[in-house]
Amino acid sequence: MSLFTRIKNSIAADFHEALDKKEQKNPISMLNQYLRDCEKEVEKVRLLVERQNILKDEFQREIHQASQLAEKRKHQADIASKASESELHEFAVKEYQQYEERANQLKISLEKVSQDLTSLEQKYEGMKHKLKDMYIKRMELMGRENVARANHRVNKVLESNDGVQSSSRFTEMEGYLDRLEHQVNSSYRRHTIDARIAKIEKELSNEEKTHSLSS
């Protein structure tokens, strides 16, 4: 193995290793890149299908033109024969044979072009289906990645050192809400008791006044 080949292989290995690391770090990003590459390939095939269709149309036009010219020369050859114009008859017959041969050759080419077009269209449709499957796969992976990220965040909050602080904050908040509820209840009970006592005092005062007047 030459030095140049070893250097080239080493560079290629480093490049693929870098890609592998990038893929492990951000698989969705790499998948997006793969999808973009696939989209470009699908677009290339679409253009080839389009060109093949144009080529098929051109063959059909050439066949039609050659067939018309062949019929024209055949008719002219008949007229020249009836008029005993041997030179014109010979020329017309030769032209007829050439156009007829051209039309037959074009028909063979058209059949081949049509078969190739059918094959290309089938491959193109297959590529589109695969690309669609990859889009769906990306959606599935994104969904799983979201769940994984959420679970990772939850676990980090609840289990890590930072989670101890977060858990402590949750506990403090719960304690605060409990104290607040207790204060509200106490205030309610206190105001209720105060109202009841005030009512009793008023009733007692009225009774005393009534008793004094009656005495």
Rank of each mutant, 00 (worst) to 15 (best):
S2L: 10
T5W: 11
R6W: 12
R6E: 14
I7Y: 06
I7R: 05
N9F: 03
A12E: 11
A13S: 12
A13Q: 05
D14A: 13
E17Y: 07
E17S: 10
D20I: 01
K21L: 11
K22S: 15
N26R: 00
N26L: 01
P27I: 05
P27N: 00
L31R: 01
Q33C: 02
R36P: 03
R36C: 10
C38T: 05
E39P: 02
K40H: 13
V42H: 01
K44D: 15
E58S: 13
H64M: 04
S67N: 10
Q68Y: 12
Q68V: 09
L69T: 09
L69H: 08
A70T: 00
E71V: 03
K74P: 02
H75C: 14
D78F: 06
I79N: 01
K82Y: 05
E85V: 00
E85H: 04
S86V: 06
S86R: 00
E87T: 10
L88F: 09
H89L: 07
F91P: 00
A92E: 08
Y96K: 07
Q97E: 13
Q97L: 15
Y99R: 00
E100Y: 08
N104Q: 12
K107D: 08
K107Q: 10
S109N: 08
S109E: 10
K112Q: 15
D116L: 05
T118C: 10
E121F: 04
Q122G: 02
K123D: 06
M127R: 02
H129D: 14
L131T: 03
K132Y: 07
M134A: 12
Y135V: 09
I136R: 02
M139R: 00
M139S: 11
L141T: 04
L141P: 04
L141V: 06
V147E: 05
A148L: 09
A150W: 07
V154T: 05
V154C: 01
N155A: 04
G163Y: 00
Q165S: 08
S167N: 04
R169T: 11
F170I: 15
M173S: 06
G175F: 06
D178L: 07
R179H: 13
L180A: 11
Q183M: 08
V184T: 07
V184M: 14
R189E: 14
R190P: 02
D194G: 01
I197G: 06
I197R: 02
K199P: 07
L204H: 09
H211M: 14
S212Q: 12
L213T: 06
